[in-house]
Design a protein around this nucleic acid. Structure first.
Lengths: 213, 213
DNA sequence: GAGCATAAGTAGACCTAGTGCAGTTTTTAA
DNA sequence: TTAAAAACTGCACTAGGTCTACTTATGCTC
């Protein structure tokens, strides 16, 4: 029945967009801490009260962009082909995201994306709040693993450990890529090395960490 | 030359202690959000300004207790015996902490400790801020691994990945233990299962995650 | 022990994130 | 056209955290 969004919904979407864009533009221009929510509200031509009706907190004005990706790994695991191992599906998906220079991989040198990433990484308040999304993603991936793999006595623990390790690795790889891009590499120059690193990381997940002395 | 702390230092230490204890007592009694820093300052008989001279933020009043442990894994790796693999040292250390019912493992049913842990886990602001310490620990462990293992072309990446995975696993195990204690188990009853889980987790780290379909 | 540089502490104003409320405007549906 | 529902607004308020200017305590030196 939801054929048409309706005027009200369309306006809400536009307002939300306007607030978010005003916020990020101002943050990129002057820095997260140097911009107050009152200024953002003024720039978006809404009241401060309305701003907080759309976004629960100042950091959400930035971090809501991560929310869309928070259960991506879980989805990949759920939608993997029959006979494909979860780690293989996640690996394949990362490879494909890297190939497409998806910003989420950090392997993206579009200036706005680089600036946005820097903003998140260089602002302690944002870097910290980012894990809120991470931990929701952990729960989602844990469930996906638990529900799509063979039952076992310690499946619950194994699923959780797999989830936290995979997400920790993905985040580490993305931050690493972005740090190198930020230092001046182009995405294309960095790509081969980023792919090698991703393969190496998944090799470690599958085969274990080195445990020589 | 630092034989004696001196009156000034001793007073500072006492003041810091008084503030921290007042804060945690009030938080445990009424909940983190229901206590203001002004009330804590009043209880500790200092000004609000002084409180913030000792602790940079409200959440640090609680979380500074984690700071002492933030580079424990790094230390374990650095101080391991010759011929011992880092993962073996970390595993051994976790076993020994579990045996001693160290609060950091979550396997501790002393009421105050349980209440403290609950406070951190159940308060979103604290659970989120907890990763600040985690990420400093990641840096420390990465360095320790890098500096005490054989050089290799991808040693830097491998060290970082090892560090983030190990810390993610330790945190997961501790939270799991504490959640079960919180649900009513005694530490001694839970111990065998907690040890099994720890061994299982380190087996996965050493030998890789399961990658069947 | 006296005196002075320095560090610690205080009071109180101030800024900003976020909430509660009471009232107004806008949209939708009848 | 109209009335209910939803969005929006202004405003006052709480609380974390900082700034400034001032007072008090400590430690060192003579």
């Amino acid at each position: 029945m939801d054929v048409e969004p309706g005027l009200r919904e369309r306006k809400k979407a536009r307002t939300r967009q306007a607030i978010s864009e005003s916020a990020i533009a101002l943050f990129l221009e002057r820095g997260y801490d140097a911009v107050s929510v009152a200024q953002i509200a003024a720039a978006a031509e809404v009241s401060k009260r309305t701003l907080f009706a759309y976004f629960p907190s100042k950091d959400d004005l930035v971090l809501h962009r991560f929310a869309d990706h928070e259960d991506e790994p879980a989805r990949v695991v759920r939608e993997r082909g029959a006979g494909e191992a979860p780690l293989d599906a996640l690996h394949r998906h990362l490879r494909s995201r890297l190939d497409e220079r998806d910003p989420i991989t950090g392997l993206c040198d579009i200036p706005q994306v680089v600036a946005f990433y820097r903003l998140v990484i260089d602002t302690p308040a944002l870097a910290g709040a980012r894990v809120r999304y991470q931990s929701r993603g952990e729960d989602a991936l844990t469930s996906a693993l638990l529900e799509t793999t063979a039952p076992a006595p310690d499946a619950e623990l194994t699923s959780r450990l797999t989830a936290v390790q995979v997400l920790a690795v993905l985040r580490t790889l993305a931050d690493r890529n972005q740090r190198r891009i930020s230092a001046g590499s182009s995405a294309d120059d960095l790509a081969p090395e980023a792919i090698t690193a991703a393969d190496h990381a998944f090799d470690l997940l599958r085969g274990g960490l080195p445990h020589h002395t």
